[in-house]
Nucleic acid binder design. Structure first.
Lengths: 350, 350
DNA sequence: ATGAAAGCGCTAACAC
DNA sequence: GTGTTAGCGCTTTCAT
């Protein structure tokens, strides 16, 4: 058996409660006693039994992290941030993988809920009700999804989309296509909304929605032909994986990126800078997101008043690389004609 | 407070020990009582308090997984397998990220050790002694590293290397270069050993060791020029990231892959099939590895006799794609000459 | 087959 | 400032 508080008490000649206090609340113990006990505890290699402590305090000093897919580096990064901040705060992290399955997600959450003080739930797949049901027993912070009444953290999807659009417009593009992710994806929805809003604010642009695609390589391949057919000079993809698929298919069709067609996307996964041309992509501070989640969750758990707002958006950053370039001369001319034909506010020719 | 065993006892009119038995060891309770209790427990939403149980049984039903970097999809996959198998066995998983830092690794392990029944330690960074020290308190299974006396699981690195070599030889290559990973990497060492062994067994081949490189894109870039200078017609890289760097630099030098130079590597990361040309790579069954780790660890924890051997190598699979092709005609001729000039066993010209 | 009772290691009143 | 005591929720002898 490991060394217990009792052993330390026996060794130092004080009572077990003094040992407990010297270790947990040192300010309540006289200097000499405290030193004696702490020294002895250290010498004997005493390590408190978390389970016993939790049994009485009702706190576990553990938090749970439930993600749809651990293999996805996106969630790995968040996990790294979570683990890092949690450790700094003296908390351990339980990991749960729901394999993108709502039923499994519920089971995983249930299995974890009892042994933690709170849960960080990434991209919850369950219904609003099922998620809300969890939050009655356990503090929860949501990532990549918002449900009224539950604190959540997200990236600034709209800001990222706008950054891409401004970048493309600055390069002279006026006909821009967007290849969206799954309709069920909340973040995809936010980006589509921002895309439309941008279009409404800039009527001189021709913005084309290519439709919804699986957020993977094959989805990008599928979108590529539509993008080419649309006449757009730039394509924005829901994520880098799709951008890779676009790239592959576009080149297969004999076009060059970015000379004939520019590509921009979201995520800035590691490989974005390893392919040629390197991808222009919106970077999400994922590790920072993980940390922010822990902060928000501990605010809840410890009932700290000065926590951040119930929901917040983390700023993102556009990383410009080689997959976006100035609009092709031919397209620029063609579009110039269009622009001239419908000048903003003034009609000189009937 | 949550519903306890006491509440269930009160509701059913039996004693708490009967409730405990009905739930934990049903065979010790009479059929009617058992049903009554189980039904009531289910209705009341009773969930056993793991901490309390652990306090008395000495078991936590938790295992720890410590990896060098959660952001690396390699470890994410292993984590997925671990989590999956552990859940099936009724175990929860603590995650620890050591950020490739031996000191932090030790701290993370220490923090986790007390709250788990065993630890799966991936690519341990600490010294043999420090790792062995852990195993005195806690069962440990090692991944990607072997230390005498500690059970470990690994991939069949040598088998993978041989599979690549046989593939290249079948394509006519006789001058093959190898770009190794860091000298400190255990798996890199295994592959280098296998490379040399293959060379010794096939004296008709010219095998070139380009040296050790960082296992990342930049390392591959660095190796590329050496590979080209070496006159090899095929390059084997320590991992896919390096292969990507090789690919980039080789094309920058005006050569084509695989027409002028073939590239093969290890890991088969997702992106290997998303670049062009798609990479020939050795696939590691990582999720399966995670599962195998849990099985091995639970053998230790539960002192099951029929566990697998103390150390074992998981089989790997070569995935042939577009980055490897038949040897260039020019090179084939040149090499034919060489081969003729130094025939095996017979010297015709002084 | 079931109940009573003794703790697992620790913290938190409550005394002194 | 320190010691005594009563549990936290559960399993596990030991009786019955």
């Amino acid at each position: 058996m490991a060394v217990t508080i009792r052993d330390v008490a026996k060794a130092t000649g004080v009572s077990i409660s003094t040992v407990s206090r010297a270790l947990a609340t040192p300010e309540l113990v006289a200097e000499p006693t405290r030193n004696l006990v702490q020294q002895a505890a250290a010498d004997m290699g005493y390590r408190p039994n978390r389970a016993a402590r939790g049994l009485i305090t009702g706190r576990t000093a553990c938090i749970g992290l439930v993600v749809p897919d651990l293999e996805n580096p996106f969630f790995g990064s968040i996990g790294k941030g979570v683990q890092d901040r949690a450790r700094a705060a003296g908390y351990s992290v339980f990991i749960g993988d729901s394999s993108e399955d709502p039923a499994l997600e519920a089971e995983v959450v249930r299995g974890i809920a009892k042994q933690v003080d709170g849960i960080i739930l990434c991209s919850a797949r369950g219904s609003d009700e099922s998620v809300r049901a969890i939050t009655t027993d356990t503090p929860v912070v949501l990532v990549n999804r918002t449900i009224a009444g539950i604190p959540s953290i997200d990236f600034d999807n709209a800001g990222g989309l706008r950054a891409i659009m401004q970048h493309l417009v600055a390069l002279g593009h006026t006909t821009i296509a967007y290849a969206a992710g799954p309709v069920t994806s909340w973040s995809s929805g936010r980006r589509v909304d921002a895309f439309r809003a941008f279009g409404e604010a800039s009527p001189e642009l021709r913005l084309i929605e290519l439709g919804n695609f699986p957020p993977v390589f094959a989805g990008g391949v599928q979108a590529a032909d539509l993008a080419i057919a649309s006449g757009a000079t730039a394509v924005v993809a829901y994520n880098d994986l799709m951008a890779l698929g676009l790239l592959d298919r576009i080149r297969e069709r004999g076009l060059r990126v970015p000379d004939d067609l520019s590509i921009a996307s979201f995520d800035n996964v590691a490989v974005a800078s390893m392919v040629s041309p390197k991808l222009t992509s919106v970077d999400f501070p994922r590790i920072q997101m993980g940390r922010a989640c822990v902060d928000a969750l501990l605010d809840l758990v410890l009932e700290r008043p000065h926590g951040l707002e119930r929901t917040s958006d983390l700023p993102v950053e556009l990383i410009v690389r080689q997959s976006t370039g100035v609009v092709p001369a031919s397209a620029a001319n063609r579009e110039d004609d269009t622009r001239t034909a419908t000048p903003k506010g003034a009609v000189t020719t009937p």
